[in-house]
Amino acid sequence: MILGEYSTPEAIESMHHTLGLDLPLWEQFVRFVQNLLINGDTGSSIISGTSSRELIAERAPVTLLLIAMASLLAILISLVLATLAATHKDRLLDHMIRIFPTITLGMPVFWVGLLLILIFSVRLGWFPVGGVGEGVTGTLHSLILPAITVAFSQIPTLIRSLRAQMLEVLESDFVVTLKAAGIPNRVILMKHVLRNSALPTLMLLGVNISYLIGGTLVVEQVFGIKGIGSLLFSSISKRDFPVIQGIALYCAISVVIISLLIEIASWRLDPRTKGK
């Protein structure tokens, strides 16, 4: 692939030696692991010759920012809607919020992105159609629609989980006791109900974090964002295997790190879960 379709056998043999493909398989694997552990690299790009680590590091900031914004939006929107649904149980507002996850679960994330572009970018002109703006303000403004699109895929399951947990806590004995003691409902809701309901939903978010990262990579293509997602798809189309390996590796590491952070947050919410 590097030398082209009409390369000579001599050139291919020379390239095999340069890449170490003439070595025994176990030695190739040892060299690969050493390079991975020492340099954090899975090899140089077949197309550009640049190390995969440098290519990924160049695109990573915008992708990480998009993931952070999407996670924050998913948590905030789910928190508000689930609280409203739980505190208005079996009323019109509760039914409307419960219908929302049922409808949205069947919507592909790329379709949601295209729909948001048509409404808020093409017709209303509130946001750019694609790309990333300049400066902090321009960057954040251009990433709002992609972040909403990614968050959209996580919100339905989070609302269902948090609403169910809040209803269970609201009907518990200690909440009835707090109400009988004359403590305001707002204080009970914020300090006791949400704290005891958040743990299962937080663990659910940790389980779904890999889907959130995968959705981010797809959404980057829809909005024309030059992040890790666009790098991945271009590498797949060009069969640039070292870069594909590097992206898969760093995404896996990101999932592990985020899952660890969520575990730590769950320990802070409920120390009884520590060590389980």
Results as ranks from 00 to 15, higher is better:
Pro9Asp: 02
Pro9Glu: 02
Ile12Lys: 10
Leu19Lys: 08
Gly20Glu: 06
Asp22His: 03
Asp22Glu: 09
Leu25Val: 03
Trp26Pro: 12
Gln34Leu: 06
Gln34Ala: 07
Asn35Gln: 03
Asn39Trp: 13
Gly40Gln: 01
Asp41Met: 03
Ile56Cys: 08
Leu66Ala: 02
Ile67Asp: 13
Ala70Glu: 07
Ser71Met: 13
Ser78His: 14
Ser78Gln: 13
Val80Gly: 10
Val80Ile: 15
Thr83Glu: 02
Leu92Gln: 00
Leu93Trp: 15
Ile97Ser: 00
Phe100Glu: 11
Thr102Gly: 05
Ile103Glu: 14
Val109Gln: 04
Phe110His: 02
Leu118Thr: 10
Arg123Trp: 10
Leu124Gln: 10
Trp126Pro: 10
Pro128Tyr: 01
Gly130Leu: 04
Gly131His: 09
Leu140Thr: 10
His141Glu: 12
His141Trp: 14
Ala147His: 14
Ile148Asn: 01
Gln154Cys: 04
Gln154Tyr: 01
Leu158Thr: 08
Arg160Leu: 08
Leu167Arg: 12
Glu168Tyr: 09
Lys179Asp: 05
Val187Arg: 15
Val187Asp: 13
Ile188Ser: 13
Lys191Phe: 06
Leu199Val: 14
Leu202Ile: 09
Met203Lys: 15
Gly206Glu: 06
Tyr211Ala: 02
Ile213Ser: 05
Glu220Ile: 04
Val222His: 01
Gly224Ile: 00
Ile225Gln: 02
Ile228Asn: 00
Ser230Ile: 11
Phe233Pro: 14
Phe233Asp: 12
Ser234Glu: 15
Ser235Tyr: 06
Ser237His: 13
Arg239Leu: 11
Leu249Ile: 01
Ser254Gly: 06
Val256Lys: 03
Ile258Asn: 03
Leu261Ile: 14
Ile262Cys: 04
Pro271Met: 08
Arg272Met: 02
